[in-house]
Simulated scan of single mutants.
Amino acid sequence: MSRIVYVNGEYLAEAEARISIFDRGFLMADGVYEVTSVLDGKLIDFDGHAKRLQRSMDELDMRAPVTTEELLDIHRELVRKNEITEGMIYLQVTRGSAGDRDFAFPDPETTEPTIVLFTQAKPGLADNPAAKKGIRVIGIEDIRWGRRDIKTVQLLYPSMGKMMAKKAGADDAWMIEDGFVTEGTSNNAYIVKGDTIITRALSNDILHGITRAAVLRFAREAQMKVEERSFTIDEAKEADEAFVTSASTFVMPVVEIDGQTIGEGVPGKVAPRLREIYLEESRKAAV
């Protein structure tokens, strides 16, 4: 059965979806995106994703194609039409097409943005077996542009990082700049030392993760100690635990970095507990 997708105001079979070859998202990676998880047929952290989408568009002087209320309706309709119980909704907004290819982008008030959404069914998303055994990561140089806080579609290097990890027999990569870990290829990175959760502070250097914000809030509410500061890859290798967070993996333990075992080589106590809390609380608040 073909998926139903959303393109510029229309719900279409995926085979019928069309975008102009002059769309700046295609030609210039001039676009932003969000991924919202679906659990029990409901949207997780929708408000957070909508606010970050607006921030990304504002930073790029891009006009919003729909209101937040309309966006919520579109998400819900796609969940309904595609009968998604567990999975994700991918949303992308580009500056659209203003005719021929040009480095200078047009006045946002005179150009209609392109908006595309599609679903991905992921049965067992909440019960991912990887969360019980943990994942392995490698360190790679971070050579991305300086505005990583904007969630753009410029994902070539993170994609290459994933492939570097795969080639090395690992699951993912942590990017390193000036000796310090910035983040994973598609997630925020954390270590645990003693009773303290450590993760890099927010700045232009990393994505302001929606799952990150929720997990840190839940950690503090559970009386866990949180320290927002940079840490080196060597410090991570000596940590008691490590983990990542993202909308698609929630809280995922890391048990190996560059071939070196972290802690006992199995998920510790902190990451599994945070995953449990996050899933429980997020389901309660889902829309």
Rank of each mutant, 00 (worst) to 15 (best):
E34D: 11
V35H: 06
T36G: 07
T36N: 02
T36Q: 03
V38D: 00
L39G: 06
G41R: 06
I44W: 10
D47Y: 06
D47C: 00
K51C: 01
Q54K: 15
S56C: 12
E59N: 13
M62N: 15
R63F: 03
A64D: 06
T67W: 07
T68G: 10
E69M: 10
L72M: 11
D73I: 07
D73A: 10
D73E: 14
I74Q: 01
H75E: 02
E77M: 12
L78K: 04
V79P: 08
V79Q: 01
R80N: 13
E83S: 13
I84T: 07
T85Y: 15
E86W: 00
M88C: 11
M88N: 09
Y90S: 02
Y90C: 09
Y90P: 04
L91R: 14
Q92T: 00
Q92G: 00
T94Q: 08
G96Y: 06
S97F: 13
G99R: 07
R101S: 06
D102V: 11
D102P: 02
A104M: 10
P106Q: 12
D107N: 14
E109Q: 15
E109V: 08
E112L: 13
T114F: 04
I115Y: 04
V116E: 05
L117S: 04
F118H: 13
K122E: 05
K122M: 00
G124S: 06
D127W: 00
D127F: 04
D127E: 15
